[in-house]
Design a protein around this nucleic acid. Structure first.
Lengths: 243, 243
DNA sequence: CGCCGACTTGAATTCCTTCAAGTACGGTGG
DNA sequence: CCACCGTACTTGAAGGAATTCAAGTCGGCG
């Protein structure tokens, strides 16, 4: 699946179509949105906490994450994002960003004026529905992360993160959930799970030693989805079959 | 502030008005919503994970919380709720509940058919805006909780929970943020912070020993908001002045 | 070839949990 | 009015999961 800059909305349309039924008019209206394509390196800050972006940031290619830090500098990753994800939908209604958004890998991005997106939603109920559902699924994922970080031990926590990543990645049309490349470093996995990178490393080794996964650099194969699901306590219901 | 069953929408209208400008027509439309008043005891399950409620549950009086459990039975509270909060707004677009909602204290509730609420929103842009913002603020709070549970130590975590509770409580018009009654048990604070009740107890004592709060049963007085904010790493920006 | 970031390993420490009692309080019934 | 009972809260001591500190190793890239 390849998209060029003349039809930059493939991933976005694919995503919206998973969330609501779109008719031909809806699709054309999306394609008529004004936009500015940008390319970003890995670890490039796209949106900074406290600023008020005027444009919405759509991830077309690559991976990104949301994060937030404590006053003492500890960083927590709040979610991972895939092609098609809108990274600051909340700025349509809440001007000030309350967290950072940053790329994980090199990425291609479309910046769309918030105003245009708002008008699009206002005039197209199906698109409005899709955006509404997207926001709600995002919130459901945050809730699951509160549980993950709050009440699971390190092993389950990492297993759960891997399950969710695999499932969402596949849903986004990025390939098999059995074998895939992790775009993030162990440091970033640590920031996502509320652990130290050292412990993440040991737990990844433990998962491999138990025959749940096999690893080769950043390439992960889930050897036994049933046991993996069990260890992680992973039940995809919270993704509402849409993320 | 007292509301009787003939004007049951006071707390809801107050909340919506904080989120968007409402005109007279908006207010009257809210008052015309069909509803069924119910009373609940403390610790009564209002919405069960996996079910598909047909009605929306508005908290008119008392306190409630969202929660979710791991397969092994560990419980995590995801958020606390106040008079005026809509407890399952997400069911307007996502039929299946992905977490439990339960009262903390005795409560008075209005059940409003989801369909009626959806139609209200469709016909009243201001109300639509308010509901949209409410959802976004909820999500912002979940994000802050991921950070809280993932990256703060026990003392800060509890301090942060107390700061947020005090701030939101005051925003909801429930009185001073300096001195107030906590409706929840230490077990519930533990479930909200991802700690054990024993450690919550010790940390509450530590906060009192440091002169940050004084406690008498469930009554809490925040003696030094500045130091409390500092210890908690609490910055109310994520509440978007609306929760 | 050498450097830098990512990953790995080991040992010591710590924060929080677990286990095990107990105390205080509010509500209930005699 | 008071004894009783259950729930919430409190305290102490021991144990453990994860962190911190301190070195490495590995691999990709200039």
């Amino acid at each position: 699946m390849n998209f060029n800059d003349n039809d930059p909305f493939g991933p976005l349309l694919q995503k919206l179509a998973r969330l609501a039924e779109l008719d031909q008019g809806d699709r054309e209206a999306v394609r008529r949105l004004p936009f500015r394509i940008a390319h970003a390196h890995a670890r490039e800050l796209l949106i900074r906490e406290g600023t008020a972006p005027t444009d919405c940031c759509v991830l077309l290619e690559g991976y990104a994450c949301r994060s937030k830090s404590t006053g003492t500098g500890a960083r927590q990753i709040l979610s991972f994002h895939f092609a098609g994800d809108i990274l600051n939908l909340q700025n349509l209604a809440l001007p000030q960003a309350d967290h950072d958004v940053e790329t994980i890998s090199p990425a291609r991005i479309a910046w769309i004026p918030s105003k245009a997106l708002k008008e699009l939603a206002a005039g197209h109920p199906n698109i409005n529905d899709a955006l509404w559902r997207d926001t709600l699924v995002d919130a459901a994922i945050f809730r699951e992360w509160v549980l993950n970080v709050g009440r699971r031990d390190a092993r389950s926590r990492i297993a759960h993160m891997l399950c969710e990543f695999a499932a969402r990645r596949e849903a986004a049309g990025l390939g098999s959930s059995r074998r895939f490349d992790l775009p993030m470093t162990q440091d970033q996995i640590a920031d996502a799970t509320g652990l130290t990178p050292i412990h993440v490393n040991r737990m990844l080794q433990a998962l491999a030693a138990d025959g749940l996964v096999s690893r080769d650099r950043r390439n992960i194969e889930i050897l036994d989805w049933d046991r993996m699901r069990a260890v992680a306590g992973f039940d995809a219901a919270y993704l509402h079959a849409a993320a």
